[in-house]
Write a protein that binds this DNA or RNA. Sequence first.
DNA 1: GGAAATTACGGAGCGCGTAAAGATA
DNA 2: TATCTTTACGCGCTCCGTAATTTCC
Lengths: 289, 289
Amino acid sequence: MLDVRRLRLLHEFAARGSIAATAAALGYTPSAVSQQLTTLEAEAGVALLERSARRASLTDAGQTLAAHARVVLDAIEAAEADLAVGGEPAGSLVVGMIPTASPLFAPALAGLRRRYPGLELVVRQIESARAEAALRQREIDVAVIDLWRERAMPGLTSVRLRRDPLVLAFPAGHPGRRVDGEVLLCAPADQPSRAATDELLGAAKPAARWEFEGLHTIATLVSQGIGVAVLPESALAEVDPATVTMRPFRPARHRWIEAVVRVSARRRPAVDAVLEMLTESHRRGGDEF
Amino acid sequence: MLDVRRLRLLHEFAARGSIAATAAALGYTPSAVSQQLTTLEAEAGVALLERSARRASLTDAGQTLAAHARVVLDAIEAAEADLAVGGEPAGSLVVGMIPTASPLFAPALAGLRRRYPGLELVVRQIESARAEAALRQREIDVAVIDLWRERAMPGLTSVRLRRDPLVLAFPAGHPGRRVDGEVLLCAPADQPSRAATDELLGAAKPAARWEFEGLHTIATLVSQGIGVAVLPESALAEVDPATVTMRPFRPARHRWIEAVVRVSARRRPAVDAVLEMLTESHRRGGDEF
DNA sequence: GGAAATTACGGAGCGCGTAAAGATA
DNA sequence: TATCTTTACGCGCTCCGTAATTTCC
């Protein structure tokens, strides 16, 4: 029978791309990882790695086996989660969160840490685009991300936390109600928020498009009078409301803030507590669906 | 992370019901099994076994964990099967077969043994009713069974091998074409063939009903002039055709002979070769669907 | 008393770290 | 040269068998 600990190494290798990184991620020496992967190849009876002195990479067989490994690890995680059902939230749990969600939800999670001493909760920043892979790789257990349009995520399950309306943001006291002739601040081309901007303002003729990374950065620039932008309301919550004028779209457009977890982790009490706290803090926030 | 080898012990224990039997089945001593299950309980953090000096049984948590174990083991088996895809059929493979199917398919399987020296093929007899559990417990890898009516078998997949028409069998030269007043030979009440007999001859008034185990036994009794019976054609193939008269039903009734395997084992070359050989020998048999 | 479970103890195997060497950018 | 990988070697842990003990039919 294939050894599952070795499958875990392969799975991690598939994500990291090098033996050294795999070893570092799992707390082993490269030597141990190298030896175990060699043994796994012997068990499998097929070459799993293409090795050179300087780097190793997966063969096709290695990739398919790594995919199987994920299924196996998911099944084990589901078993562990089921064992813990009914118990106190405990163990280590990493929450990945987009920057604009932090002010909304981080305080609630801080309260969770206080309530459950057995819970080691870490909140990290993450991009929405990387969240799916990070969840699958078990780098994080819960992802709080924004979704700009519907998307299927097999093996993952999500809870809607907040509908976040998009608005056109002007510097306060700005005379015009039109984008034409203004400086339009927007995200780089690969960002989903950029796609939304382009779609909503497709007909407009701004004087220029300036690209910046980060909705918070763009919000700050608007508040400083640099230009106008399409932004979700929550990104404007952090700047002085007196400095910005918001105009909603008709029909209304929005992004969703969602919490995403692996289905196999869903039953962990710790995950459950986090999800409950996240939805609860939404209710306190007063936004309705 | 839960240790999968220990999960395998738990899974086997769930099927066997005792530590001694589990140890015997997997080639360990009871001592080893006892120790490993104790360790598994420590890992799980929950009581999995209710122990007395004389016997041990699963707690609720133990049962649910055993169910999870099956999922994990299936995933590993699927990974192994995928690794072997494209290779020569090899390894150990146990085929469970109902008695009436043996003369139809056993010769073909014998040929398979000759063709693939790496294949250790064992054919065992099995009752249809036990086949599903035996497959799940990995006692057998392929089951050749009869199906008297449609039945869902989650986690398993089946291939239809042969439509086996039911006939009314009389001793040769028997004058009457009616069951009334004859001795009706049939299976005990819990057998599916008995249900078919009762359904087909519900209105008849036999002089007596004599119960015997095994369709082949019943076929032999008919050929010896003891009585009449509802039988599948294949059960009559082994007795001297001169001694039996067959009358088909209208509308035609039949049972299916099917090969059933775990989906997780489906891709093993050895399983594939066996299934192919089984369907092929059906074609040679000349029966059409 | 016998069958089934557990505990004690010891040996063998193997997983992993240390150290060193090879290879490539 | 620095980094990534592999090999050699040895320590220590863990698994499992033997044997003895306990408990309940």
